[in-house]
Design a protein around this nucleic acid. Structure first.
Length: 361
DNA sequence: CGATATTAGTGAGCCACATAGAGGG
DNA sequence: ATCCCTCTATGTGGCTCACTAATAT
């Protein structure tokens, strides 16, 4: 299992699946889905195509990055496609209680929305962060640094755990209650780490009422992908469950849910930068907070490590050479006596049957 | 359609023992 | 301060079993 997971690890897309490529340029990951054209587009292609024809578009699912987002979940602070929404919010009763809203399509240039969200998408070196810059750039393995500039100074000051710093959690500690998709303890006694996880419940009860909403898509873009990789589904549920061990946050506990790339779907109002104009300082702070959450979420997905970590290779080497009886470690004398017994039995059997072939055990 | 039986998948626990690390002399 | 010894806790992999979910009858 560890080997299989190792293969999955490090693949972009977080859950081990490459993000859906742009239908136009094929080179970049799709960031939006045009309902009129039924096309997945990166930000650059979207800006080029929809600068004139302002079709209704929606952002991609933040989890699978394979299907257009259908709903947004406040608790998870994420826009999800129908499939991911089903998977995540059927995990346990708490998850079902997550308040979700149908996505609102936007008509302006996605890139302008990104820019108008109040976010500074320029990284420390002046480069736009790959996660939000449209996907028309190859994702860089920036890791921790990619998010450092996003966080307010207070967040950095509140950090105490140096291990968190190493693992890339440094800049997002305050988001833990709702976006803490901790990867499991890689030590062998990982069960201890999983004890806090709400048991996965895979009931197939219909989910939310927004499925039939006109803003939602009834296309199952990624079901086959998720179900074909059973581990992904499992880890998905577990990860979400781990975030659900707390209470479902109310609307005041966090900023309003917004789409990736800084858009906000809190509903019609002055703070909704859907039109790309009229952003306020509050919106900027919410957008910043939102982007930090999303970025941290994605970083954790990217850095997730499932393979077993060997701390002492000498012990591993020794364990591999040690004698076993039915998988359990056995005393050497015990094994020797057992081998002796088998040998005696085999020898007697061969003697009785006049066999001259040495048996194998 | 519900109840029951079967199959498949998953994870915890067990085992012995070398080794790391703490503590005392 | 350093070395040596003793003791305890830890970690390691393959297998079995219990449990659950899915599927078949």
């Amino acid at each position: 299992m560890g080997i299989e997971l190792h293969h999955l690890n490090g693949i972009s897309g977080g859950w081990g699946v490459v993000a859906k490529p742009c239908d136009t340029c094929k080179a970049a990951a799709a960031a939006v889905f045009c309902r009129v054209d039924s096309a997945f587009l990166c930000l650059n292609c979207d800006a080029r195509i929809h600068c004139v024809n302002k079709h209704a578009r929606v952002w991609m699912c933040e989890v699978c990055e394979q299907a257009p987002a259908a709903v947004t979940c406040k608790a998870d602070a994420a826009a999800l496609c129908v499939t991911c929404d089903n998977d995540i919010h059927s995990a346990n009763p708490l998850a079902r209680r997550h308040e979700r809203n149908p996505v609102e399509p936007f008509f302006d240039s996605a890139d302008s929305i990104v820019k108008s969200s109040g976010l500074n998408f320029l990284g420390p070196n002046g480069n736009r962060n790959s996660e939000f810059s449209g996907a028309c750039q190859q994702p860089e393995e920036g890791g921790v640094e990619s998010g450092a500039w996003l966080m307010p100074p207070s967040s950095k000051l509140s950090l105490e755990n140096t291990n968190e710093m190493k693992s890339g959690d440094l800049f997002f500690s305050e988001m833990d209650p709702f976006l803490d998709f901790e990867y499991p303890n890689s030590y062998p006694n990982h069960s201890a780490g999983m004890d806090s996880v709400v048991p996965v419940q895979t009931s197939k009860t219909p989910q939310i009422q927004v499925m039939n909403n006109e803003n939602c898509f009834d296309i199952d873009f990624c079901r086959s992908k998720l179900t074909s990789l059973s581990y992904q589904t499992q880890s998905l549920s577990q990860s979400v469950s781990s975030s659900d061990t707390g209470v479902v946050p109310d609307g005041n506990s966090m900023s309003d849910i917004s789409y990736p790339f800084g858009r906000n779907i809190a509903g019609p109002g002055p703070n909704v930068p859907v039109s790309g104009t009229g952003t306020t300082q509050v919106t900027q702070l919410c957008g910043l907070d939102r982007e930090a959450r999303v970025l941290r979420y994605r970083e954790k997905r990217k850095n997730r490590k499932f393979e077993k970590t060997i701390r002492y290779h000498s012990r591993k080497a020794y364990a591999e050479t040690r004698p076993r009886i039915k998988g359990r470690f056995a005393k050497r004398t015990e094994v020797e006596s057992e081998v002796d017994h088998l040998y005696v039995s085999a020898a007697a059997y061969m003697a009785d049957n006049q066999y001259g072939v040495v048996p194998t055990f």
